[in-house]
């Protein structure tokens, strides 16, 4: 009862389907880039934020924390830490590491200057103002 089932048709469908859906994905990507200016808080992308992002990256913060839910799940979400803790707490916390509490998870001491701490906080503030469709569900991240 099996009808014809040829490799060449299967192959054509694979190539056709792949191209079709990739083009569709590019079209949606294009629409996304058009829609982002209203959502991604780019008006607040200052030089200071750029420096802060560089500090974020070169200290590999993503190796323990999540940012907008992406990263490692060892330490708290930082996309909304600016609202949760406020700038002064964040800076004091980073300066005070590691806590050295026995058996507790430890964060390294990064020896950041006051200027660098301000940059990092500016980056976290910018991140916290991105329109994330109301994620995370609550302040605890």
């Amino acid at each position: 009862m099996s009808a014809s089932f040829t490799k060449s048709t299967a192959r054509n469908i694979f190539y056709g389907g792949a191209v079709f859906f990739f083009l569709l994905f590019l079209a949606l990507t294009f629409d996304t880039t058009q829609a982002l200016p209203k959502r991604d808080n780019r008006v607040n992308l200052t030089e200071q934020v750029a420096r802060g992002k560089n500090i974020w990256e070169t200290r590999n913060c993503i190796g323990c924390h999540t940012l907008l839910g992406e990263g490692a799940y060892f330490a708290p979400e930082l996309g909304n830490v600016y609202q949760r803790r406020g700038p002064e707490f964040i800076k004091a916390w980073i300066k005070g590491q590691p806590t050295g509490a026995p058996g507790r998870r430890q964060m390294p001491q990064f020896h950041l200057t006051d200027g660098e701490l301000d940059d990092l906080v500016a980056f976290l503030k910018y991140s916290s103002e991105i329109n994330t469709n109301n994620w995370p569900p609550n302040i605890e991240g």
């Binding site: 469908i13 694979f14 996304t32 907008l68």
Partner: peptide, 29 residues
Amino acid sequence: EKWLYVIIAMTLISGIIGTGHHYYWIGTP
């Protein structure tokens, strides 16, 4: 080989736009 093509066709049909499941909460529309 023909089953290979059918399977990977299904993979890309679902998987390429499936990227969208990472675009829920990162500032994307």
